[in-house]
Design a protein around this nucleic acid. Structure first.
Lengths: 338, 338
DNA sequence: GACTAATTGAGACACGTGTCTCAAAACAAG
DNA sequence: CTTGTTTTGAGACACGTGTCTCAATTAGTC
């Protein structure tokens, strides 16, 4: 049987009230007494029974995911997994709500974050582009005791508590795969992004270029084409580029591969060229199976969601998490390992 | 606030004692009363507070991992992660012990499993080669109420409750990668395993051949070389094969890549040929970085360990798990996404 | 040594559920 | 209706921890 606070009290030669004072860091205990209790803790290997403590405190864990409003498939996957996780969380007295806000309105996001207090919520996972307003709001959340966790889209301020992948490495992985699949062929690589204004896109592109330049000098990575999420624009820029030069491969670094890939299909390219995209969605899975995509670089949406929740819980409990579990892997998907 | 059994009792118009009788399926309650309680459960959305229940029952979760005694690096990774998980488990009143048994002694394993009862243990994760003795012992464990979960090495009896990857798909993934990395080159593929007697090896080889035959007809997959875990034998068979024909690629399907890769290195091959191996270990990571390995197909050891624990816990609580979380992915590792 | 302030102890009650016991009520059979 | 059996209720206590209150002890000061 695990030692209890009663055992602690007995071994330390104090009362349960004093043990409680020490365990919960209350005032008015002599250093000597504190030491005696701590020694008893070590001696017995005492570990507080969290469930009993939470029961006594009527504590539950309430978290919120603040996500963009845009309808991107990858985002939908994330939301699906947050909701799925919810069904299990309830057994552990936890909840996870989703709030969708306009990602281009930093004031709006900051305003919402400003309404959150420890009364209503224990922590927030925030997926939003970097902005001074949001950064500020996060700082103030922390001051108020609400845990804030940057989620998927990076925020510079972040010490190291965030959930997501190293996008430079993801780009490098795409580069390696694309280069090797081309097998020494010479040629141009079409690169399509939604916008190069976001940090994620820049980092992916950077990692990609690094690999291409150093390991595949016979490939030429063309300037990034930006679709701004518009199908028409995607069609226009890709057609224009493809008509001017021969394309050997395409790297779609946006998290939404649907538009660009449709255009490539219309141009009849996928059969001849090597195509790499990001993020697993029902759409990219299908494209892998059909051969329109050769590889997908992805971060597991379910893992992202659950990792965020685990991290937030660890933060509220002031515990640490397993580093190896929370490292989000850069997955490579082929038709064979779906 | 979440509804409690008290609320249930009030709404159903019965006493707390009766609510308990229904919730825990005790005898001697009229069907009509049962229905009334169940309706109240639905109406209130009642979910039993597991922590409180476990506290009242003084329940903890004790699990055992039965693992082979052999010193394979991959196994060591698994053990490391089980121990690492232990440090977190303690907060949830769980424990996970490791017992190492001679994997070639099915009687010994069965005998050990025979000693386990619900008195001492709630569940066992078993990594052992298939054998009638072990299969039998597992059946009897289940009869006694001890949850048993085949772990990493498959057991045919398995309904679908087991933890591990689809080794056929893993072999196919290796094949795709190796074929595509070779980029249309013609040649022989060296295949090295520890033994082809194990189900895992056979399945990997099967998946590999399928892909090579259908998608890379210009490659010839040579007969599997078996090392039987001996470095000398590895050296002998690989040298012999390499001297007889030109090798374009090597596929090491054993979970221990050290031996074969050392031999290949001595032969000066890794620079010229494409090499694919299995399982992430400090050794294979290093080989990826140095370029001696081009790709590693792997199953995340930490994920395996934690998934087994989650599944065992779900089994004892008679709950279901998140399918998406428990699906062990076939990871592809390159130097770029370590 | 007396006085005050700081420190500690004893005990009660709560959290939500499980598990008893014993009595009361409802029901069925004759 | 009585009798015996089933079904239900009321209440107590337990699990390990948190949070009070009030009294008792100890330490520090002059």
């Amino acid at each position: 049987m695990r030692p209890t606070t009663k055992d602690l009290a007995k071994v330390a030669g104090v009362s349960r009230a004093t043990v409680d004072r020490v365990l919960n860091g209350r005032e008015g205990v002599k250093q000597k007494t504190i030491d005696r209790v701590n020694e008893a803790i070590r001696e017995l290997g005492f570990v507080r029974n969290l469930s009993a403590a939470n029961l006594a405190k009527k504590k539950s864990y309430r978290y919120v995911f603040v996500l963009p409003r845009s309808g991107d498939l990858f985002l939908q996957e994330i939301m699906r997994h947050v909701r799925e996780a919810e069904t299990i969380l309830v057994d552990d007295m936890m909840s996870a709500d989703i709030v969708q806000l306009d990602e281009n309105d930093p004031h709006g996001i900051a305003a919402y974050l400003g309404t959150l207090t420890t009364e209503t919520v224990d922590g927030v996972a925030i997926m939003a582009p970097e902005s001074p307003q949001v950064r500020d709001a996060i700082v103030r959340l922390n001051e108020r005791g609400v845990r804030a966790l940057p989620f998927v889209s990076n925020q510079t301020l972040t010490d190291n508590d965030w959930v997501g992948i190293d996008n430079r490495a993801a780009g490098a992985t795409a580069g390696t795969l694309l280069g090797r699949f081309l097998g020494g062929v010479e040629g141009n690589v079409l690169i399509v992004s939604e916008t190069m204004k976001s940090r994620d896109s820049l980092e992916r592109r950077f990692g990609f270029d690094q690999v291409i330049n150093s390991q595949f000098p016979r490939l030429r990575a063309l300037p990034s084409l930006e679709t701004y999420g518009s199908m028409d624009r995607a069609e226009a820029v890709i057609r224009a580029t493809a008509s001017r030069q021969k394309i050997a491969a395409a790297y779609i670094l946006a998290s939404e591969a649907r538009g660009p890939l449709t255009v490539l299909r219309e141009l009849g390219l996928p059969g001849d060229i090597v195509t790499v995209a990001h993020e697993r969605t029902p759409y990219t899975e299908e494209a892998l199976r059909s051969g329109d995509l050769d590889a997908v670089i992805s971060q597991d949406a379910g893992h992202l969601a659950r990792s965020a929740i685990r991290k937030l819980k660890a933060m509220t409990d002031r515990r640490s998490t397993l580093l190896s579990q929370e490292k989000i892997r850069i997955e490579i998907l082929l038709a064979a390992n779906l």
